[in-house]
């Protein structure tokens, strides 16, 4: 697994400092990775409060195991492995429970207030995307989110999912095949 560390990882250095008792370095890691971690978990579980709770648990576990930390892989590989594990467990436990929609928050990033019609079209399209992602098997979903939004390489996704690179290629091929079938019409057919 050490071979996965191709270049010196500054996060590993910070984590080693945390292991030696430097709490400030933990704060640096927290600030650096908080958003990407919460966003990944949000897209996995599709529930904002749950994604934040799970992200907190990830950081708590990292902090709790600081004394025994060994840099065998990139820090983010370790972090996303914990996150994926927690998310997959949560999804397994919540298989039949659908999360409440919280689409209002999505508009905070918009330049101007949309009309009611635009808002309805956007919500419908967004729901399609969420449904398409949610319809993927859990591991495919995790692989797509890490590939698309975290821009991870196949080798790192493989380490996070504890599978082979070849298995990740298969997961992504099948996942994108499903997404192309479900979402391809959106750009040509939709308006925003």
């Amino acid at each position: 697994m050490i071979s996965a560390v191709s270049a010196p990882d500054p996060d590993v250095y910070l984590m080693l400092r945390v292991r030696d008792g430097d709490e400030d370095c933990f704060g640096v890691l927290l600030d650096k990775h908080r958003n990407s971690l919460v966003h990944f978990l949000y897209r996995m579980v599709q529930d904002q409060p749950v994604s934040e709770e799970l992200a907190q648990e990830v950081f708590l576990r990292i902090y709790r195991s600081r004394a025994s930390y060994e840099p065998t892989a990139r820090f983010t590989t370790w972090m996303f492995r914990i996150a994926t594990h927690l998310a997959l467990n949560w999804l397994r436990d919540q298989k039949n429970a659908r999360s409440e929609e919280r689409l209002d928050e999505q508009w905070e990033v918009a330049d101007r207030k949309p009309s009611v019609e635009q808002r309805m079209v956007y919500q419908a399209r967004l729901q399609e995307i969420r449904d398409a992602i949610a319809s993927l098997p859990d591991k495919q979903r995790a692989a797509v989110l890490m590939h698309k939004y975290q821009e991870m390489e196949y080798s790192q996704i493989a380490l996070v999912l504890e599978s082979s690179e070849s298995a990740v290629k298969s997961l992504l091929f099948r996942a994108y095949e499903t997404l192309r079938a479900r979402l391809a019409h959106m750009v040509t057919g939709g308006t925003r």
Binding site: V38, Y42, R43, E105, E108, L126, R130, L179, V187
Partner: peptide
């Protein structure tokens, strides 16, 4: 399509 799906702020 996936680019339009923004995660809410933390």
């Amino acid at each position: 399509a996936l680019d339009t799906w923004k995660a809410p702020p933390v």
